[in-house]
């Protein structure tokens, strides 16, 4: 399964398959739950953080968080 941190280009058809890591709870609370559709919007100037869209809002993640989100492509 690719990690969210491996995605480098904008993509609108991602789906969260698994969330782990020390920030698990806060990521779930922010709505990044397994099965949720996310869009990869862009990378910041130095590659990280990245900007994604989840449940209708935009959020930035560092590599340390994106490493712990597994995604697949759907539809």
């Amino acid at each position: 399964m690719p990690k969210l941190s491996d995605i480098l280009t904008p993509a609108e058809n991602l789906r969260v398959t698994r969330v782990t890591g020390p920030a698990l709870n806060r990521m779930l609370e922010m709505g990044i739950t397994p099965g949720t559709a996310i869009d990869f919007i862009r990378q910041a100037p130095l590659g990280f953080p990245i900007e994604i869209k989840v449940r209708g809002f935009l959020v930035a993640l560092r590599k340390s968080e994106a490493d712990h989100i597994e995604v697949d492509h759907h539809g």
């Binding site: 020390p22 922010m30 935009l58 959020v59 560092r62």
Partner: peptide, 11 residues
Amino acid sequence: GHTPFLMELPT
């Protein structure tokens, strides 16, 4: 310790 980095980019 690890602090989650989840920063909302508001509209």
